[in-house]
Amino acid sequence: METHKIHCKEVMSHICDNIGEESDSPRCKEIKAHLEKCECCQKYFKSIDSTIKFYKEYNIEINEDMHNRLMDFLDKHECDRQ
C-alpha cells in the first residue's frame, strides 16, 4: 500500500513536470501504464489539465473605446484616419 502511494506521488510530480510534452522514454511509458490503471492519478491529471484549460479559455475582449484611448495615448489617432 505504502509503495503504491509513493508511486502515485511520483506520477503526480511527473504530470506537473511534463504535461503537454510527449516522450517515449522508458520512464514516461511506465508513468502512462500507471495512469491507465490508477483512478487517483487520472483525477490528478484531469485536474491539472483542467487548470490549464480554464486559464486558456478565460479571455477578455478589447472594445472600441479602449482602442481609441490607446491611439490618444500614443498620439497616433490620425493613423486610423489614413
Partner: peptide, 30 residues
C-alpha cells in the same frame, strides 16, 4: 501611418488579453 495603425490593431487584443491575464485587473491591463 496606416501600417502602424494596422500593426496596433493586429496585436492590441493579444496584448490587452495577456496583460489582463497577468494583472487580473482591467485598469492595470489597459
Amino acid at each position: 501611418r496606416r501600417a502602424l495603425s494596422d500593426l496596433i490593431k493586429k496585436y492590441e487584443q493579444t496584448v490587452y488579453n495577456f496583460s489582463f491575464k497577468i494583472c487580473r485587473n482591467k485598469e492595470k491591463a489597459e
